[in-house]
């Protein structure tokens, strides 16, 4: 029997397939090669009629099959319905491995599925591999990123969640038409006890900015106050960057929680991360140390942030940022010119 790796295809509130699915699908191809050429398949839980539309979106993921549970009660995420649908399908398909994104939804859903299936779940993995015995070796940070642990699972499916942006999606088109396989799950007997009354969407300019930004300018306690963050924002706008923050800055009320980078915030991997007045505590760096290039500005030349930075300037951000604002980045290939 062909082994299967099943990946949960989270549908966002705006009816997109969450990007983390494509990242997991790509990583899973690598795992599949080490697992007797296992099949990589998707698990989709959605309202009626959507699966066919999504087929196009799935083309790039390289998966073979989409197992679908369609029901109009599945329009918005509900722990109760989604757990039932996922558990029933997983019981039927019996995948070797089941992966989910460590999103709000994935973190709500995955532990319910694993408990119901009496299997293990490794959260927020930063590395996935198949060991010599054919087991999923899931590596994750613990103790706030200070210790890494590789975790194995005795039961099937071996489950893991991975944060968005930890793995990369397939680069070139890995086009493969997927078969849609409809599965019926009886949701009638579930008494729904949780009801969504209101939803207030964040402004679109705020969300996903950090997730998709090529450049991030992040501020910490060293930015001191609202004026400091204004300066930071001005600089970020100038170079076309999104603004991030350390937890200290969030706790001081200078930035909102969704701007926080780190263990209890977001994991980001921009081309360039510019840390301003951030000391570089491990809980912060774990969320940004995979950025392609890191630049740090800090008045303390011994600050740990410099240990992971490519370039550093030891000095006062309140002097350096206004100075930097005098240089104007023109188009992509132009060099910086000092304004008259």
């Amino acid at each position: 029997m062909t082994k299967e790796i099943l990946i949960y295809a989270e549908v966002t509130r705006d009816n997109y397939i969450h990007t983390v699915f494509f990242e997991l699908a790509n990583k899973a191809q690598e795992l599949a090669e080490k697992l007797d050429e296992a099949e990589v398949n998707a698990l989709l839980i959605s309202p009626k009629g959507l699966a066919a539309d999504y087929r196009e979106a799935f083309k790039n993921s390289g998966i073979s099959k989409i197992y679908v549970c369609e029901d109009d009660r599945l329009k918005t995420y509900s722990t109760e319905y989604f757990t039932k649908a996922a558990v029933e399908i997983a019981k039927e398909v019996q995948p070797e491995i089941l992966l989910l994104g460590a999103t709000n939804q994935g973190r709500d859903l995955a532990p319910r599925i694993s408990t119901a299936l009496h299997t293990g779940l490794t959260a927020d993995c930063t590395g996935l591999d198949i060991n010599e015995k054919g087991q999923l070796a899931a590596t994750r940070p613990t103790f706030g990123g200070q210790l890494m642990a590789t975790i194995l699972c005795k039961n099937l499916p071996q489950m893991a969640t991975v944060r968005p942006k930890v793995f990369k999606p397939a680069e070139k088109d890995n086009i493969k038409p997927a078969d849609i396989i409809y599965k019926t799950v009886n949701l009638d007997e579930i008494e729904k006890k949780v009801e969504l009354l209101e939803f207030h969407k964040k402004l679109t300019t705020e969300i996903n900015e950090l997730d998709s930004a090529e450049i991030i300018v992040a501020g910490g306690r060293g930015m001191k106050n609202a004026d400091g963050f204004k300066l930071l924002k001005e600089f970020a706008d100038k170079i076309g960057a999104a603004v991030g923050a350390s937890r200290a800055a969030v706790e001081m009320g200078l930035a909102s929680h969704d701007m926080q980078v780190g263990q209890t915030g977001k994991t980001v991997t921009p081309k360039l991360y510019i840390a301003c007045g951030i000391s570089g505590a491990i809980q912060h760096t774990i969320g940004m140390d995979k950025s392609e290039k890191i630049i740090a500005i800090n008045k303390d030349e011994k600050a740990p942030i410099f240990e992971i930075a490519d370039f550093g300037l030891a000095g006062d951000v309140f002097e350096i940022l206004p100075e930097l604002l005098k240089y104007k980045a023109l188009t992509e290939d132009a060099s910086w010119k000092k304004l008259p």
Partner: peptide, 16 residues
């Protein structure tokens, strides 16, 4: 200096 840093930022941005 800020000037040198500006140059590094430009390089890291991938422009030059």
């Amino acid at each position: 200096s800020a000037e040198e840093l500006a140059e590094k930022i430009q390089i890291c941005k991938g422009g030059k």
